[in-house]
Amino acid sequence: MEKNMRMTQIVESTITDMSPRIQLDNVKKVYKSGSLETIALRGVTLSVYPNDFLMVVGPSGSGKSTMLHLMGALDKPTEGKVFIEGYDIGSLKKNDLANIRLTKVGFVFQFFNLIPTLTAIENVELPMALANVPKKLRRKRAIELLKAVGLGHRTTHLPSELSGGEQQRVAIARALANNPAILLLDEPTGNVDSKTAASIMQVLTNLNRDGRTIVMITHNHELIKYANRVAQIRDGIIISDERKEQEV
């Protein structure tokens, strides 16, 4: 995949722990619907580092989700630049963007977004199938991932047969399938009870401790304690960005 990709800019020639995995540089995003223009981001500059467990908080319509979509190469900025592991998202072609989503980032959504016609294990295998991982290997890894999120016994169930918490854990396992360095979560605990939310947060904390960069959007201020960095966004602008030291 690297060969096919146009490497327009690499932030640093060698990516060390200190180089940001995601970098937003004065990013503006405007949605046009007919003659109506909606400004979602008004100039966001933000660097997300490998060890970050970044919690993004803000009211509805503040631009949180838009920012997450840009961080996950689902969308391109209207102005400014977005870099994901050094790749300039704005200058990439559709296929290259798809490759970034396939290998560099993992998405988890509020409404789980599992494929309803696939079983838990098939859902986890899906990103690996997209990445042409051989069948045997992906089945093995899917079982490992489901075990890791505590669902080793529910592998052949359809999403409709799983509880909200279980579905979300399948979604996390799926996001990790191709071993991405970045995990992007859009209110992952928004549709589960507080106990399940706590267990999900524990899984995420462990993943972050293992070196995965996590960016998570939430409305729930109680969850802030799990993060090591909190950014507040309002009207498309980051109004605060605090790093907490040595949170256990």
Binding site: K94, N95, A98, I100, R101, F109, N113, I115, L126, L130
Partner: peptide, 16 residues
């Protein structure tokens, strides 16, 4: 449509 969105978010290309 939503399923297509999910597939794309997982890295599926247009041709897939």
């Amino acid at each position: 449509t939503r399923e297509i969105g999910i597939l794309k978010s997982l890295g599926a290309k247009d041709r897939t």
